[in-house]
Simulated scan of single mutants.
Amino acid sequence: MPIKNGDFIKVNYTGRLENGDVFDTTDEKTAKEFGIFNESAEYGSKMIVVGSEHVLKGLDEDVVGKEVGYEGSLIIQPEKGFGDRDPTLVETAMVSKFDKKPYPGMRFSVNGRMGIVETVIGRRARVDFNHPLAGETLAYDYSIEKKLRGTKAKIEGLINLYVNSDLDVEIQGDTATIVIPYALSFDQRWLVSKQRIADEILTHTNLREVRYLEKYISTKVEKKDKNEKSAKKE
């Protein structure tokens, strides 16, 4: 069946600039080849909910109507990529606002916005708050690997998308309970993403409630388990 908005699918893709440089990919080998490999990133097919812009708008729209197994390419214009460059987003900031002496190419964050220092003259720095790829025409090669079916699989896919973790998910009636390990309770990605994960679960499934259950294990139990494992090895 053709892919439609709201479908949970897994895709593989590689994005290139007009000069051929790769700026984004789900393939580890390609990332290493083009010098953009990130040790903290997870490579392999990426789960997206079609129409939710988990990927660039141009790619998100292009998968609609395709079938699982599709392989193809597309060109994404700036308006459906990282947007056109906006001259008003190039601003002047006082050097005193920086934690350390600014220099061209330095990243600068203020009020939740990330910019790049272009020039520094005297006590003033010129900062570009446009996305680094704003105004760029992009080329994408992509394939559709599979479509996720079943509520539990979809929830697990969303969790992996946002926090790259495998969590226990239980579904009873119209309620999903997601077990949160103690360590994840303080993870910044989890704290930022948990509301959105719940919102997307409720939007894209027939569930009416999402419960997060934080799990704490006694250190006595952990020590007992370790001792039992050691005894078995002996």
Rank of each mutant, 00 (worst) to 15 (best):
A139N: 08
L56P: 01
F34W: 14
R126L: 13
S109G: 03
I217V: 14
N206T: 03
K100A: 13
E91P: 09
L158C: 12
L89K: 09
S45I: 02
L56C: 01
E61H: 05
T119S: 15
V192M: 13
I48H: 02
Y43G: 03
I171E: 06
K229V: 10
I75V: 11
A176I: 00
N38V: 08
E61L: 11
Q77A: 03
K223M: 15
L17F: 08
N130P: 03
L202I: 04
I178T: 06
G81C: 01
R16M: 02
G15D: 02
G83M: 07
S52I: 15
N19V: 04
I217S: 15
E91L: 12
I144D: 00
E28F: 04
D7E: 10
E42A: 13
K194G: 08
V22Y: 01
V11K: 00
G135R: 00
R126W: 08
T30P: 12
S52V: 11
T25K: 01
G35Q: 06
F23L: 06
R211E: 04
K101L: 14
G105C: 05
K46I: 08
T175N: 09
V64M: 15
S45F: 07
R124Y: 13
E61N: 11
G173N: 02
Y142F: 10
T205S: 13
K80W: 11
T30Y: 05
V127K: 05
P181V: 02
K100G: 10
F37Y: 15
M1T: 13
E33K: 13
I201K: 07
I178L: 11
R107Q: 09
